[in-house]
Nucleic acid binder design. Sequence first.
DNA 1: CTCATCGACCTAACGGCGTTAGGTTTACTA
DNA 2: TAGTAAACCTAACGCCGTTAGGTCGATGAG
Lengths: 215, 215
Amino acid sequence: MDLAAQRRRVPYRQGEGERLRQDILDTAARILEESGREDALSLRGIARELGIAAPSIYLHFNDKTDLVRTVLDARYAALASTMREAGSAAAEAGADAWGVLRAIVGTYRGFAVDNPRRYRLMFSLEQQTSAEDRRATGHPLDRVLIAWTDAVDQYLAAACPEQREEADTLGVLLWTGLHGQFALWHTLPHSFVDDDTILRELEEALMRRLLPPSD
Amino acid sequence: MDLAAQRRRVPYRQGEGERLRQDILDTAARILEESGREDALSLRGIARELGIAAPSIYLHFNDKTDLVRTVLDARYAALASTMREAGSAAAEAGADAWGVLRAIVGTYRGFAVDNPRRYRLMFSLEQQTSAEDRRATGHPLDRVLIAWTDAVDQYLAAACPEQREEADTLGVLLWTGLHGQFALWHTLPHSFVDDDTILRELEEALMRRLLPPSD
DNA sequence: CTCATCGACCTAACGGCGTTAGGTTTACTA
DNA sequence: TAGTAAACCTAACGCCGTTAGGTCGATGAG
């Protein structure tokens, strides 16, 4: 720990103040990633690590929840991107429509299983978006929602075009269904830590029941 | 507020010390019910309301998380009971198997929609049950899980006996699917506060796709 | 070259929190 | 009547988020 080195930090030069904002964001993201608990993150702890005074964080964020929200918003966008990339990669590798959708589902499961506490944190937040904000910038989770409806729409377009109008409903059903499985994973019978077999079985069962087979 | 009256509380008499435990439990339950946030509950706040000293809570609970867990465990059991009662009531009112199941689903939705923050709190907790505890007393949510698998099993027994062996899987799929919908409710499009229409539609869509029709 | 301004921080302090250590008072028991 | 034990208590520690009010060097204007 280079606490001594940080104790007398030299401030960023004029015009580079935004770099501290990024430092704070990075540190907060790492702590949240590791702990998966919002209350394991403290502004004073961040300040200690960075060698700054705790109130300096308020130069860049309104309060603690603003900081956490900013970190998580980036995570939502990253998750949505990862899903899209997984779909594209599977398609380029020659997978059929069902295979592409399964690749996306598997990526999402991987994200949830890889760090269950992070996943819970991301999806159990209050997220009290005001109706105003919502109409302006949309809900932070909209990117994830759209990634799902797009994924299902592409499957339907290739496999079952006549049901394509149901893409939105099916996308929501698939996403919420999978989310429920991951959220309740540890309460399901025969679920041991680091064994996601039951999740693979459930997700297969859910997909087969929800989605129409390929023509 | 009868703070003045409580300021000098007369202690429970010898042999009645457990009554304070119940007082603490009741107060904690009320605050959690109203706020839906664990960090809105403070031991010092409970103590103020009851006219006791904060450390006295430690005579009855190991720490704050122990208190919260105790409150929530009772809620899980109550939820499971309510589901069973709703099923029985529907059956006695002459509903068919599908109607009974829908009554149970509706009750569960009502519980979630009636106080979304309480619902989130109940199902987003760490619940780090040790493997040891789990084998001894079971997971606190097991009662809810069993209520679901029982409900689906009874439906299948009446409507589609040949698929009855799938009751466990279908129960889990139904529960996790519904849970995902409720957990992500506020991120879904066209979901306005106090309008659970979209939930009713989604739950109908999920049930119809998951469950086999009646013979 | 001076000097006011401004950006990038800082210290001090407030009130609140969970939790621990170590009493104190009251009732029952031997 | 002495002692034990139940049902509490006070004081204190070290955290925490947040606010108020500095400090100090770079920068641009006159």
